[in-house]
Design a protein around this nucleic acid. Structure first.
Lengths: 267, 267
DNA sequence: CGCCACGTTGAATTCAGTCAAAGAGCGTGG
DNA sequence: CCACGCTCTTTGACTGAATTCAACGTGGCG
């Protein structure tokens, strides 16, 4: 791996570093290592399936560009999107542990992935306690995102659901450095939104129109601008704390140090 | 910890052992250690809150008896149950990593918990690779359960949702040894079911009536008997593979061995 | 007994779905 | 260059699954 290549990969993995650093106090060394974990690269066109239900996951990967989604196809042809994968998101850390995917993953916009080898993952997990903790936290955050979606689908009406999803995307983009002045690129079609929120495309269309008319958002040409975030959050009953962006409690530093000295002793 | 106490705790933790052994080939030593991890015990009456949103989680614990749930209270007084905690389920492995709970946990039936100390968890994670892998798998299963609920809430009607939930509970009970002839104790009220499935209690009642009348289930006095599992699963579009009860792929044995030798070298 | 939580039933209402059609934007190939 | 085929978006009229409101039944328990 040349320096140049290393730098290029480093740039790709900046969202990952930024996301993880959000949580744990990564050392400069940790960050350097993280930027170098990508061993292969793959690109997918919009709509392309990255991995399908029933297949055996090949390796861990990180989204470096674009938006992908986890989804399930229903027997009647409909589908349900479970979650979005944004740049910096890891995919299938548990890749070693599962015989067959219970859902599919597909690209929504053009997507680039960086593969991370099994050995690299194990090395990080066992010898880089801060990174290991940050990865653990990351999976905790994913779980929280899933729980929050359950709340949205179970107890919010169409307005609340759409407002909530836009808020979540905005906050997640901000956490990885993709947000610019409350505007983000939103490559989701109205059909995608409907498949995410358990609604029909027609109804999504009508609700979006109302959100635009009431001056809450601008949404056109795959660009979303939130004009009145407080009001949008109120409509969604949105509270960003479930994303746990504040990081870990202070006391955890001692645990890190403990683990780090163990790792050093091993080396 | 006396032998007698140790045995009593061992009995309590049997569902945990059974669940984890479902996945990873635990050694006899692993199983013995697992049965001894409980360091404290607590009981909760039905409806009692175990931990509330905004609180700081105290410790990791395992459900040894009864059913609890994770839920979120909504500003308007409604609530959404996200998932159920059955015997053998772990709660808040990520306890070290989070500043404040983003949801609450409450007992549904009388619940008994075994606390597991932070040091014990770290020890298992670093020195018992098979247990560590099984715990990891367990959190993977939890995530899959959450995703499946999203599918149910987003894309199934009331009949499908209820049928799906009953199927899931039946399979999960079976996985920890709580099922008897397709009958399980189901301490959930119709209100609880409604809060889980994003429906109203009234509608749940009507649908349950239909399920009973069509000879699919018997449900009375908190006992559920599934009379026609195939038809119930068909109605739900239920496929148990998301629970990943089949265990890990064979190739993972080598990874275990590798990690175990590392752990031994350390000791 | 009387309270209270839970379960059951009916009638009216509504939010979101269905069906149908037309417009807007875009790449491609004749 | 424009016609076409395509996907995505928009709009209207009608339908329907689930909610709401309201009442009554029922069993356990202090």
């Amino acid at each position: 791996m040349t320096d140049l290549l290393g730098q290029a990969q480093g740039a790709d993995l900046a969202p990952l570093v930024r996301k993880l650093a959000n949580f744990a106090p990564l050392t400069a060394e940790d960050q350097r290592i993280l930027r170098g974990v990508g061993s292969s690269h793959e690109s997918f066109a919009p709509g392309a399936r990255i991995i399908g239900e029933g297949e055996v996951p090949r390796s861990v990967f990180v989204v470096t560009e674009g938006v992908a989604c986890r989804y399930r196809d229903m027997p009647d042809g409909r589908r349900q999107i479970m979650t979005f994968l944004l740049p910096g998101d890891l995919c299938d850390m548990h890749v070693f542990l599962v015989k067959a995917m219970d859902h599919s993953i597909a690209a929504i916009s053009p997507v680039r992935l960086a593969g991370v080898s099994r050995d690299t993952v194990l090395d990080l997990l066992f010898n880089r306690p801060r990174i290991a903790a940050a990865l653990w936290w990351s999976s905790l955050q994913e779980e929280a995102i899933l729980r929050e979606r359950i709340v949205a689908l179970g107890r919010r009406n169409a307005h609340g659901r759409i407002a909530y999803l836009l808020c979540e995307i905005l906050w997640r983009c901000e956490a990885v450095g993709l947000e610019l002045d409350r505007a983000v690129s939103l490559p989701l079609s109205q059909v995608d939104l409907a498949d995410t929120l358990g609604l029909t495309p027609v109804h999504v269309n009508r609700v979006l129109k109302q959100l635009r008319n009431s001056g809450l958002i601008m949404l056109a040409n795959r660009m979303l601008t939130v004009l009145d975030l407080p009001r949008l959050q109120a409509m969604a009953g949105f509270d960003s704390s479930y994303l746990h962006l504040g990081g870990a409690p202070e006391e955890i530093a001692e645990v890190f140090d403990q683990l780090e000295s163990r790792a050093r002793a091993r080396a």
